[in-house]
Design a protein around this nucleic acid. Sequence first.
DNA 1: TAGAGCGACTTGCATAATGAAAGTGACCGC
DNA 2: GCGGTCACTTTCATTATGCAAGTCGCTCTA
Lengths: 131, 131
Amino acid sequence: MSRVNHLDIPDDAYDFRSRCSIARSLDLIGDKWTLLIIRDLMWHEKSTFQALQRSEERVPSNILANRLKRLVELGLVGKTPYQDRPVRYRYALTEVGRSLEPVLLSLMAWGHGNLGGGQYDPSTGESKLPS
Amino acid sequence: MSRVNHLDIPDDAYDFRSRCSIARSLDLIGDKWTLLIIRDLMWHEKSTFQALQRSEERVPSNILANRLKRLVELGLVGKTPYQDRPVRYRYALTEVGRSLEPVLLSLMAWGHGNLGGGQYDPSTGESKLPS
DNA sequence: TAGAGCGACTTGCATAATGAAAGTGACCGC
DNA sequence: GCGGTCACTTTCATTATGCAAGTCGCTCTA
């Protein structure tokens, strides 16, 4: 059970572009949707496919399915059935997934300061919308 | 000269997906290459097209040209000629561009802790490579 | 027992982005 | 002239994105 890292990624399963930590991170989460899905799982109590699909940005269902599958394979998200007949699933961040919170916070701070975006306070659940 | 934010983006020039700061940030820098270019400008003294092209990850020249153009338009990077005959350009982060450093640092920390990537210390210029 | 509906996807298909490779144009030194 | 450097462009095949519609299992109501 030799692993190259702390995730479920087996040796040789993922060929990173380089040894740079930033490049490796971007290989996994460097796109327009993945971190928004993680945001909703982290702070907005969205745990089902349906709920995640109804986020403000309206992620297309095929992209959402693809990203969730990927995140589960990578070990950032867990998927467990919460009922049978018909089977329905709940998604939740793993500890490794939750450890992305500082990345979300720094992106939020930058966007709030420079792009006029809203700011969300995870501790209170309140958000200040832009003027 | 009404602006919607602190960048050179005029009102209506950029239609963000949503008012979420994270979504807005990802609209600008949410891809596999942009933050690597910013990393090189920020920490690795790369300032010419040629130097940026020769980074470890080997960004394709058309992508590099596209991203630099975009970053200049957005006001994250400045472009100035440093010689005529023939004209040659130097790229450098603006203050807004430099303010992305915490984002790079948090991504680096996450990748270092979870993906076995190397860690770079901007203050000393030294990097610890993965085992 | 025949729909109607829900949740979680999947499929089809057109458009857009990516990336490898080669090409262009200004100039300089030999 | 001739080769080389730098800063890009262009071409074109491959891949990703995204809208819309469809599927599948099952339950609930008429």
